[in-house]
Simulated assay, not measured.
Amino acid sequence: MMVDKPDASKHVALQRAPVAEVRTMESADIFRGASEIMIHHDGVIYRMKITRQGKLILNK
């Protein structure tokens, strides 16, 4: 029994929408030596904290 191999010429390259560059910031620049900051977003205050293990926690 013969199996046909797929024809590579039939494959069409997928076009992707342009991706906006995501800005990256250092946590040290955001916290500036503090272990906790408050973030005001859409009328709500959020608390971001660096834990003893160095993880970030965001609470409403």
Score class of each variant (00 low, 15 high):
R47Q: 11
M48Q: 03
V3I: 09
A34W: 02
G43P: 02
V3A: 06
I39Q: 03
S27Q: 07
F31R: 12
D42A: 10
I50E: 08
A8T: 12
L14Q: 00
I57K: 12
R32W: 00
R16Q: 12
V22P: 08
G33N: 04
V3N: 06
S35A: 13
P18W: 01
E36T: 13
M48K: 00
Q15H: 05
D7H: 03
D7S: 12
I37R: 15
A20E: 15
Q53N: 11
F31G: 09
V12Q: 14
V3W: 11
A13R: 05
G33V: 10
I37M: 07
M1E: 08
A17T: 04
N59R: 09
R32E: 15
M25H: 10
K55N: 08
G43K: 08
R52D: 12
R32P: 00
L14V: 04
Y46A: 07
A20R: 03
R23V: 14
Q53E: 10
I50V: 07
F31Q: 14
L56D: 01
Y46M: 06
K60Y: 10
K10N: 12
E36H: 04
M25L: 15
L58Q: 07
I37W: 05
E36M: 15
S35Y: 08
Y46V: 00
D42M: 13
P18I: 01
H11M: 10
I30N: 05
D29A: 06
